[in-house]
Simulated scan of single mutants.
Amino acid sequence: MTADENHDFDPEAPEEREIGREMVDKSVGLGSVVAHFYRGEMSRVTAWRQRLDETINWAVTVLSAILVYAFSTEGRHEILLAGIVVVTIFLGLEARRYQDYDVFRARARLLQENLFANALDPSQGVEHRDWRRQLSEDYRNPTTKVPLLEAIARRLRRVYLPFLTLLVLAWLFKITAFSSQSWTEGAAVGKIPGTVVIGIVFGYYIVAIAVAFWPRERKAKGEFSKQEYGEWKDEN
């Protein structure tokens, strides 16, 4: 693209922003290209969504096996502590996958908000005036949209904090109801005193809660971020 051509193209110009209207009003090749392009992006979104589900399925399977073994005749409370470590590993893996998933979801949402929504109702205009430039830049220089800490927080709230809560409660039940010693003595692991183990477990759990619910600006491109109900859902 020459310097003059680059100067002439203004994605914020009305005729460029209204590409959605053009797709409806005119039969152009661009509409076919965008349709295939959108289908490809949605395919990526679906694939990464399935990868997230696979991680959760593995976490549930491992968690179930750990709980069954921990409360069997030979089970020890240390296996529940190992379960907390395993769930944390799954959390880290899923947070990274969530970052990749959000890249493609953000592109799909950008098209839905500014292209398809505008094609259906041009009177509302576009959500982002320079959406074409944003999308073009993202294809030239792909970047993650969600910080790792936010991804961890979102997966904690949705899935992994309940898993950790279940393991911590099961561990407390194991060292109290299934031990003739005091719970501080029963929590000992090898030569590590029980008070130290209890401090580490509760400290980790408090940090997990803080990470999950600490107020922060949302970067993830969510589909259902507003609690509003459309009139078309009403039964009349």
Results as ranks from 00 to 15, higher is better:
L149W: 10
A212E: 00
A95H: 00
E223R: 13
V28Q: 13
D53H: 04
K233Y: 14
R17E: 09
I89H: 14
R216P: 04
T165S: 13
G31M: 10
V68D: 13
V87G: 00
S179Y: 03
F90D: 03
A170D: 05
V196S: 05
I79Y: 08
R97I: 10
A82G: 12
A188S: 08
K191M: 13
R157G: 10
R96S: 11
G186L: 00
A70I: 08
L91V: 07
F178Q: 05
T144M: 15
V201D: 11
G92R: 08
L52S: 01
Q112G: 08
N236T: 11
R140C: 10
T144H: 15
K219A: 09
R21G: 00
D25Q: 13
L167F: 02
A187L: 00
R39Q: 09
A65G: 04
E12I: 05
T176N: 08
V146F: 01
L110V: 06
W171I: 03
P193Y: 04
Y229I: 15
A151Q: 00
R49C: 06
L148Y: 15
A210W: 14
L135H: 03
L91D: 08
Q50S: 11
V62Y: 00
Y229S: 12
T144D: 12
S180Y: 04
I209G: 07
A59G: 06
D138Q: 08
E78C: 05
V207A: 12
V45M: 03
K145N: 15
P147N: 04
A108D: 02
V24M: 11
H77K: 01
D4L: 15
Y38M: 10
E127M: 07
A188M: 02
V196A: 10
V196R: 01
R218H: 10
R107I: 08
W214C: 09
D100E: 14
W58R: 01
L148R: 13
I198W: 05
R17M: 15
V103R: 12
V159Y: 05
V62D: 09
L164K: 06
Q134M: 05
L67F: 00
Q134R: 15
G190A: 01
E22R: 13
P11L: 02
A153S: 12
N6V: 15
A212D: 06
L148W: 12
E54L: 06
F71H: 10
Y98C: 02
V28W: 04
A177R: 10
R216S: 11
V189Q: 07
Y139F: 11
I206M: 07
S136G: 10
I79R: 04
A59C: 13
M23D: 06
K226Y: 12
F90Y: 12
K219T: 09
A106H: 08
T46D: 13
A117H: 10
Y205K: 07
F90V: 03
D8G: 02
I198H: 07
S32F: 14
L166C: 12
E94T: 03
D102P: 00
M42L: 15
R129Q: 09
V168K: 09
W171R: 01
A70W: 09
A119V: 02
V60R: 01
Q124T: 11
R158Q: 10
S123L: 08
E137P: 03
I84F: 13
P162N: 08
Y229W: 14
F163N: 04
A65Q: 13
S32A: 15
R17T: 07
V62M: 01
